[in-house]
Amino acid sequence: MKTLLELALVLAAAAALLSVYRLIKGPEAFSRAVALDVLTLITMPMMAGLALWVRRSIYLDVALVYAVLSFLGVMALARYADRGV
């Protein structure tokens, strides 16, 4: 089972690398925003996995707070494009 979890970690890291590529390359600011969204969604399970690894449930709260606030940030970005924050 440890092997499966290691595989998951490698896959998540590779996914983070790919979305960083899109972040650097992205022709317009919105493609970068999509990359930021995907990076957030990759980081949240990584934080939860870290919580499992060190057996401290407070790490999950960080993931929860991150989910709420990154939603806020992306919404602010979208509203900015539309008619100002």
């Binding site: 972040l23 970068r32 990359a35 940030g73 970005l77």
Partner: peptide, 14 residues
């Protein structure tokens, strides 16, 4: 482009 810079700052803080 300052909009892109804001997105980069968000990734850095993540």
């Amino acid at each position: 482009n300052l909009l892109a810079a804001v997105v980069f700052a968000g990734v850095a803080s993540l």
